[in-house]
Design a protein around this nucleic acid. Structure first.
Lengths: 95, 95
DNA sequence: TTGACAGGCAAGTACACACTTGCATATTGG
DNA sequence: CCAATATGCAAGTGTGTACTTGCCTGTCAA
């Protein structure tokens, strides 16, 4: 299981998280299309699939299989470990 | 200026942040010694120095020069960008 | 069934970066 | 001044990993 920090290290993976935050539960092909269109990333399907594996390994993405579709869901929970490890300065914890 | 995500990607840099959280304002040599002792990392001085440069570039560490000493201070502020970009699930924002 | 669609597996390539080695620069104490 | 301390600079090496290419498996509709 890869750690959260490694998962966040790649620009493409952060873009995927952005995409899932905007529209949760997308399939691999949807993510491919939208990443190419909106974020201007020209990545192959396999590249994105590999990134999704890393994100899932870090617990940032959960998947749900349905027939020939596989839907990807964002889970920001693991990010809490970051701000718990190095607490933020007081004043605005709740945005 | 390197981004926060890249800065957090390396295990050694996270250990340095841990060390600074425990005892703020350390010099390079102090960090070297304590990393070797407590965290069991066998890194050269230059390696740690390079890591500190990255952390400073990401705004996670600020430095203060004083004679031949250079003190390193932790700043967790940039971490806020992470939880603002992908908000945490409701319920426990303030631990 | 056949064909189209959605996804998975595996090996190869290329570049980034973590780490080292060697030398140079500044500050302080004797 | 001289030696020790604390740090900086620069080039080289090697491994990890992001990305590609090629092929295979599974699901649905006609």
């Amino acid at each position: 299981m890869a750690d959260v920090y490694e998962a966040l290290a790649a620009h493409a993976r952060r873009a995927i998280l952005d995409e899932l935050r905007e529209r949760n539960g997308q399939t691999l092909f949807e993510i491919c299309a939208r990443l190419t269109m909106k974020h201007g990333l020209g990545l192959s399907r396999q590249a994105i699939s590999q990134h999704l594996d890393v994100l899932e390994g870090a617990g940032l993405v959960h998947t749900r299989r349905e027939g020939r579709y596989k839907f990807h869901h964002l889970d920001t929970g693991p990010l809490r470990a970051i701000v718990e490890r190095w607490p933020l300065p007081k004043g605005k914890e709740n945005r």
